[in-house]
Design a protein around this nucleic acid. Structure first.
Lengths: 313, 313
DNA sequence: ACATTAATACTCATTTCGAGTATATATGTG
DNA sequence: CACATATATACTCGAAATGAGTATTAATGT
């Protein structure tokens, strides 16, 4: 192939953990600049696979030993990988990864940050976020009206409806972010276009990292339901309520407690340890552990969160 | 970034269609060489996005106008992108795509080929393929026995069990292909290692294209169940049996006719046209069309094929 | 003692699913 | 034309899964 076809490949990782009710992502933050995901170039000479390249880079940058990892998507859009400083020179194709861990000893330049800082409209645990009605929908209405022609307006109307209309589908995280981007509701839109920022919902990230994070959340929310991935984020033993809170934090939804318990129990996802959690108030809860055997036994075990939100939080 | 980090990006597409009961993939075949998927390099100067690059390349090579497309995975393993001629020079990272179309006018160097030529063990419509018991399981048993140590043997045993043991999970196409690759049951294994071929199940493809195709089939089989993607492969109108045969062809499984009908009808995926198919024998079937509106209405409509195989074909 | 809090158990109606049986409408054959 | 055969379509029925509770148990704080 021709040398002019050469491109640099950037590897980025959305490293996710949950502490209590807060789903977080590990970010590299330098003062003044936006947060970034840990990332680095793929070196075809050193690295045998993309994933081994990622592990090496991330290890160096964050001192983290990635556990579960999964490739998300490869982004190559022109103009979507600019840093805040605006160097538009190199064309970079970026491969995003999702990694799940528990919090540990991080490198000093990195920190865990709640992911709803970047996506405040995605957290429906307490209530439908007010900003959807106060800021998002009015702006999107305008976006529909400003469409260049009727056909485009109809397409936009449909997208708005799917993303923010009747019936919240918690998995459409990326679709929603991309819609907000195109509608100019997000800082990155202005940065990529080299224009002054007009609207900026949520906290911005460097490059296309918020898009990668959106992809990560979407994938994780989907995967939760058919693979027992939550357990990668849990301590070795946990109470059922802790497990539920973790799932809720990730899904951004509240679940029905009794049914949640029935689900994980009936599916054989967990087993009691016979020990009890130190409790403050209320009846003490039994500590459970993940039954690794289910990975072999069942076809598609997962916390099939009865997707519907609990009537009222 | 350093120039030595530069890599070529190859774009490949698994273009899928179904004609009758035969799911096919569009391949480029030159005599003497293995089949290949349509592919070409990504040109960062010309192409704004990876997908537009793909569309351009594929358009030139196959005269096909891709409809539905979806990015699958980005492969970068060293030594898995060798051609049959064995040029090991350039390091290529390949981005695989899935595209769904109907058959039309193809370029002369391309042809539709049934995908079960490449994966004969994946077609369970008539019966559990005999080669699983006659060839695959014995060889995999040996693969387990030849493990370097007990721990590795246990891991291998589990993988064999998940892939080919009790309970067929039709989505694990890639997992199965990778297992067969590692166990040396597939031509590509020997080619990539530069060794003489010992065992070769199914028809080989160039580069890592069979792996990309496996990824495509797996993704499509999964997606079928929660998104109405089959309809991309159907004529504008079709009988319910034709629709069922298409789904069965893709899934490699037989389905229960009456329940299939109930499913697609109850979900509002199709609507009758009031016209009837020209019939040879039996009562004539009504022609249906896809109700595009469901894309807006329901959360996750798809042909939730009651995964279990029909008792006996 | 008792209000409060949380864990866990049990109930119940509804929906979905798997697997049929039953009936309707063609063709082809003697 | 009667009837075997093939296919489409309708309807049934029990089992399992799901959504939304109520009931009971076991702690703490006052």
């Amino acid at each position: 192939m021709n040398p002019k076809d050469n491109v640099s490949i950037g590897l980025s990782a959305a490293i996710v953990s949950v502490e209590g009710e807060r789903p977080s992502v590990l970010v590299v933050s330098h003062e003044g600049a936006d947060d970034a995901l840990p990332f680095g170039p793929f070196n075809p000479v050193q690295h045998r696979t993309l994933e081994s390249g990622l592990r090496k880079w991330v290890g160096e940058q964050t001192r983290f030993d990635l556990g579960y990892t999964e490739q998300l998507y490869t982004f190559g859009d022109k103009g979507r990988h600019l840093s805040s400083s605006g160097d538009g020179s190199a064309r970079v194709v970026s491969v995003g990864y999702l990694a799940l861990t528990r919090q540990g000893k991080e490198a000093p330049e990195t920190q865990w940050r709640g992911w709803y800082h970047y996506f405040p409209w995605e957290d429906w645990r307490d209530t439908r976020p007010a900003m959807i009605d106060s800021a998002i929908l009015p702006a999107l209405k305008k976006f529909v009206k400003d469409a260049p022609n009727a056909e485009s307006a109809e397409l936009r109307r449909e997208r708005v409806n799917v993303c923010f209309g009747e019936g919240w589908d918690e998995e459409r995280v990326l679709e929603r972010y991309e819609l907000l981007y195109e509608a100019g509701l997000v800082e990155e839109f202005y940065r990529d276009a080299g224009k002054p920022v007009k609207q900026a919902l949520g906290t911005a990230m460097q490059f296309d990292h918020r898009r990668i994070l959106a992809t990560a959340i979407a994938r994780l929310r989907g995967k939760l339901k058919y693979r027992p991935v939550v357990f990668e984020l849990m301590a070795p033993t946990f109470t059922l309520l802790e497990l539920q809170r973790a799932v809720e934090a990730l899904a951004g939804l509240r679940l029905h407690k009794q049914n949640f318990r029935r689900l994980v129990a009936d599916q054989g996802l967990v087993e009691g340890t016979g020990k009890w959690a130190a409790t403050s108030r209320g009846r003490p809860a039994e500590l459970f552990r993940f039954r690794r055997e289910v990975l072999r036994e069942r076809q598609a075990p997962g916390v099939r969160l009865g997707v519907r939100r609990i009537k009222n939080a």
